[in-house]
Amino acid sequence: MKKLGLIGFPLGHSFSKKYYLNKFEQESIVDVDYDLYPVENMSDFKALYQNDKEFCGFNVTIPHKRNVLDLIDELSPEAQAIHAVNCIKIERRTGSLYLKGFNTDAYGFEFSLRPLLQEQHQTALVLGNGGAAQAVYYILKKLGISFKIVSRTKENGDLTYEELTPAIVAENKLIINCSPVGTFPNINEAPQIPYESIGIDHLLYDLIYNPEETAFLRQGKARGAQTKNGYEMLVLQAEKNWQIWNGELE
């Protein structure tokens, strides 16, 4: 039985486990299992895959997307540029272990965003600067969309929330929430931005998928904006991970 899993700490609700176990059942895949592995220290993670030869890959979530880099033998171009890994493929080469690191968050974000982009989406505001935001920055640069980072402190972004004026929000027609604000169970919370400046030309994208419609998206929709949550991004990255683990992608 091959083993796949998700590492992070702490681990609560997991999209990945539910998604892959459903996939295995629906596609009659019987030789693979997927489980959660709450790992606080990287030394514990290393022991996990070194001591069990059944492991062939992992997903990585907070706080380890960068912590894990020291254990990786080879990085994909995206992972190298973003300096973060969310997918690991384990190869066993003549008895030695070889770990390849990928960032499929970037792929998931890019191809869930692309169909929604219109001519007015030339500039963007990115709310938050955590690990998830790094893949967003990478893709916006790839797509030629200039952006400003909005953070709680000036040291971590271009603008603070206090500096975000109605005029700036009106000017930037693409707004992406990469912060955890609004995630279940805090479903009534939303990033503090001037929502009154949002209109029908805006596109609001929230990386959060639970709840399905965050307060951030709800306020945008009420003002005529196009909205998108993070669910499709997760599905796309999950399928890309599966291709990597099965050797369909290198």
Rank of each mutant, 00 (worst) to 15 (best):
M1H: 13
K3D: 13
L4F: 14
F111D: 10
H13L: 13
N172P: 01
L174T: 10
K18R: 15
G128C: 03
L217I: 09
V169D: 00
V68T: 00
E189N: 15
T227R: 06
L140V: 09
G101D: 04
H83G: 02
E40K: 15
T227F: 05
F9A: 06
C56R: 05
M1W: 11
L140W: 10
E74F: 09
Y205K: 03
Y138F: 14
A133Q: 01
K228S: 12
V32D: 01
V85M: 00
A132C: 05
D158V: 05
Q237N: 09
K23M: 14
Q243K: 14
L164Y: 12
F216P: 10
I176D: 00
N59A: 05
P10H: 15
A238Q: 12
L71A: 04
S112Y: 09
L249S: 11
T61G: 02
G101L: 04
P38V: 14
E54Y: 05
A170E: 10
W242M: 03
K89Y: 00
N51D: 09
L6E: 10
E162P: 05
F45R: 08
S197N: 08
N103M: 13
F147W: 09
E119S: 14
S151L: 10
A47K: 14
L48E: 09
F45C: 09
I72D: 02
N41F: 13
S112R: 07
H202M: 06
Y49F: 13
E239A: 10
L75N: 09
I90E: 04
L116N: 03
I198H: 04
K3F: 14
N186L: 11
S146H: 07
N156W: 05
S151G: 07
F184W: 02
K154S: 13
T123L: 06
F216R: 10
A79K: 11
E54P: 00
I176V: 09
N59M: 02
K228Y: 08
R152S: 05
D52S: 03
D70S: 13
L127Q: 03
Y20E: 07
Y37V: 05
A124F: 11
R152T: 06
F9S: 11
D206H: 08
T165N: 04
P185M: 02
L159E: 03
Y19F: 15
N177G: 08
D31I: 06
V181A: 04
I168L: 15
Y107S: 11
I187Y: 02
L207R: 06
K228D: 01
N241S: 15
Q122M: 07
L249E: 12
G101R: 01
E78G: 00
D31G: 09
